[in-house]
Each structure stands twice: as structure tokens, then as C-alpha cells.
Simulated assay, not measured.
Amino acid sequence: MEFLLVLLIGLLYASGTYMMFRRSMVKLLLGLILIGNGANLLIFLVGDINKGNPPVIPRDFSSLQGVYSDPIPQALILTAIVISFGLQAFAIVLLKRVYLVTGTDDLDQLNSDDQDI
């Protein structure tokens, strides 16, 4: 299971990096999304995949006994998903506005000085 996740993370990082090297702003955003998903999977993988009980200490024990799930990686991934969704929504609206004003999404054409935005 871990080996498949490592391959998937590598594929997401490689394809995200490739997409970010393209000249289109839409492909840049898609590459950023792929790298963000790869980072979430990496945090999930580093947090150790195991099936266990929820991390709740019973009243008669003073510490956790046996195998339990670690809630920290899950909380970090959930927070990263919410933040990346907000960033993606803002970037999509910004890309739409730039395309409406300039008529292109090519980054080389947007770098020219003759257009006032």
C-alpha cells in the first residue's frame, strides 16, 4: 500500500511540475492543484497508515493502550484541503478576470509592456 502511494505522490509531483512549466495560466493553476494534492498524500503517508481505534482514553486508563489512529496528520490534511480550496477559488476568479481584460491566458503575452490592465 505504501509503495503505491509513493508512486502516486511522485506522479502527482512530476505532473504538477510539468504543468507549471507550461505558458498557460490555467495549466499553471492545475499544476499547483496537483502539487497540493501530492503534498496532502505525503502528509498522510508520513503519518503512518494503520487501522486502529480512535484516540480516546477510557476512564479507567491513564494512557492509550494498543494501536490507535493518530489524529494530527488527519487534521493537517483537512486544514490544507480547506485552505487550498479557498486559494483555488480565488485563483479561478482572478484568471477569469485577467482573461476577460486581456483576451489571453498566455504568460508570455501578459508580460509585454504595451497592454494596460
Rank of each mutant, 00 (worst) to 15 (best):
F21H: 10
D105Y: 00
D116Y: 11
L28F: 10
V56P: 04
I92W: 03
I49L: 13
G86P: 04
A14C: 11
N111F: 07
Q88L: 07
K96I: 09
Q109R: 13
L41S: 02
R97P: 01
G47T: 08
L29H: 11
G38H: 00
L8G: 07
M19F: 15
S15V: 15
L28N: 05
L4C: 11
I43N: 02
V98L: 11
R97W: 03
I33Q: 08
F90P: 01
L4Y: 14
P54A: 04
L12C: 00
G66H: 12
L4K: 09
G10L: 08
I43D: 02
F44S: 12
L87N: 05
L76K: 03
P55M: 01
L11C: 11
L11A: 13
I117A: 07
G16T: 02
L5V: 08
K96M: 13
D106M: 00
V26A: 03
S62T: 15
N50D: 11
D108L: 06
D48H: 13
Y99M: 00
T102A: 04
G10E: 10
L76W: 11
N40G: 13
D116N: 07
I92V: 14
P58V: 10
N53K: 10
M25S: 04
E2Y: 10
L107Q: 10
V26H: 05
G66N: 06
G10H: 08
G52P: 04
P55E: 04
L100C: 06
G38S: 01
A75I: 13
F90M: 08
L5F: 14
L11S: 14
L64N: 08
L11D: 11
P54H: 05
D113E: 11
L7M: 13
G47C: 05
D70E: 13
L11E: 11
D60P: 03
T17D: 13
S69L: 13
L87F: 09
D114Q: 06
L64E: 09
P58I: 04
L64R: 03
V56A: 01
F21M: 12
D60S: 08
L107F: 10
L42E: 12
L28W: 07
V101Q: 09
Y18A: 14
D114E: 14
S62K: 06
P71K: 01
L30M: 15
V67D: 14
I83A: 08
P71R: 01
G66Y: 05
R23H: 12
L28E: 06
L34A: 09
L76H: 05
V46P: 02
G52R: 04
G31A: 02
L94Q: 02
G16L: 01
T102S: 07
I57C: 01
Y99H: 08
T104S: 03
A39W: 09
A39N: 12
N111C: 06
Y68A: 06
